[in-house]
Nucleic acid binder design. Sequence first.
DNA 1: CGGGAGGTATTTAGATACCTCCCGGTGCTCTAAT
Length: 485
Amino acid sequence: MDLLKELKENFGYRAFRRGQQEVIESVLSGSDTLAMLPTGTGKSLCFQLSGYLLEGQVIIVSPLLSLMQDQVEQMKVKREKKAIAINSFLSFPEKKRALERLHAFKFIFISPEMLSNPDIREAVENLDVSLFVIDEAHCISQWGPDFRPHYLLLGEIRKGLGNPAVLALTATATKEVRDDIKNVLHFKEHNEIVYSVDRRNITLTVEKVDTHQGKINKLIDYAASLTGPGVIYFSSRRLAEELASLLREKGIENVTHYHGGMEQEERILIQQQFLTNKLRIICATSAFGMGINKENIRFIIHFHFSSSLEAYLQEIGRAGRDGNESAAIVLFTEQDLSLPLHLMEGELPFDHQIEGFVNLHESKSADELYSALQLSESQYRFLDHYVHDYSGNDPARQSQKIKQLRDERLRYKKEKLVSMVKWMHADSCRREGILRYFDEKMEDRPADCCDICGFEVKNLHTYETAAEVIPELDWEKRLEKILMG
DNA sequence: CGGGAGGTATTTAGATACCTCCCGGTGCTCTAAT
C-alpha cells in the first residue's frame, strides 16, 4: 500500500512526521503497537489514517472530556462527520440516540469510566471494532491503580470487543511504565516504537532557594524579565491564585490562574485566551496542560516541583513546540518535599480505614462508609476496587492483603518522587540525568543544555514577543459547542 | 510537614510574639432537586 499517497489524499500532506509511518505500518500489520512519540508529532493522525485504511470502527479512549470534544471538533472541521464523543456532555436522550446508531460512526471517542458502564459495554460489543486506541496511555499507570481505577479494566474491555488490535499512544513513559501499559491492555504480538524524550530546545535549570519568600521574589523577577508566553506550576490552588494576583500587583500584565476547582466554562475560556495570546502567563496546578496545543510557550517555571520525572517532562514538554529556544526552571526549597509526600499519603487509605471497610462494606451503603470512615473519594475507590479482589478471604487476611497493596503503591509513588528530588540535587548534567531515567543515552549536547553545563537564565536569548494577538476567534460559539456537544 | 489565618498575651494603645488550628492535586459519572 502506498501510504504517502493515502496521506496526500486523506489529509493533503506530502510527508509524514517522524515516527508516524512506522506506527501506521505496525497498526496495519495487525500487531499491537505501543508508540512513544514526542509531543507535537501528530499522534492523532496515526489512528485516523489507520482507521481509514481498516475496515471496522475505531474506539479511542481519552482521559479528558475537553480533549475528546476538541478532537471530534477538529475532525469535523476537516469534514470527517463520522466522529462522536460519548460522554457526560450528552443528555440522556442524546446518549440513547447515539448508542442506537453507534454503528454509523467510524471514530468513537470515550472515557474509560463510560466504557466500563454495562449498557455501554453491551452497545460497543456489538460493533465491528478493528482498532482500540488508548490516547495518553501513561494514564493507565499514573492514574489506574488509585485515582481512576477504570483504567485497569481496559484489558477486559478489549476482550469483550473481540480482541481488536491496540494502539497505545504516549509521549513519556519509562520502560517500567511501558511494561505496565502492555500488561494492563493484554498485549500480544507487538511492536514498540520509542523515540527519544529529549527536547533539545528546552534548557533545564534548577535553582535552590532558602525560603518560601525567596522563591516568591525569584518568581517575580522571572515573570518580569522573561518574555513570551509561560506557565508557572504550583501544587496548591490557593497559591496559584495568590501568586497570580501578586504578579498583577507588580505590574505584570495578562496573568491569571487555572486549576481544577474552577468552572468548566472558565477553564475553557482561559485556555482559549492563552492560545490566542490574550493571556501571557498562567499560574496553574497540574490540571493545566493536557490538550494544550500552543506552539510558542517560552518558559515553564515550577514553583513546586512535580511528583515524578515523567510528570515533570510532560509539563516542560509543553514549551517550545515551535522548535525555538525555551526555558524550564525549577525553584525549590528543602521544605517543599513535605507537600507532595502528604498528598500521596492522604490519597490512599490508612490502616484503620482498610480494616473498617473490610468489616463494614457488605452491611453499609457507600454514603455510610464515607462518613463512618471519613474517606476521601480516592480512598473509597481504592478500597472498593481491591476489596473485591480478595473477597474469598477472611477479614483479617483481606485487610492484610489490601494493606500490602497500599504499601506497594505508596512505595512506588515515593520512589518516583525520590528520583525527582535526586535529580534536582544532582551535580551532573540535568539532561543526561533525565535521559538515563528513561534508559536513553545522550548523543549530542545542545549548546544551551542546563545550569550544570554552564547555562544561565539571564543569557536566555530574548525572544520575539508574540505581540500579535490572534484575531478574535468566535470563542463563545466554540464554548457553546464544546459544552453542548 | 509547612504556611497562613486568627486568636491571645504582653505591654502599654499600636505592635510584636507566640500559639493553635486548618488545609493541601489530578477527573470521570450519576443522581436528585430545581
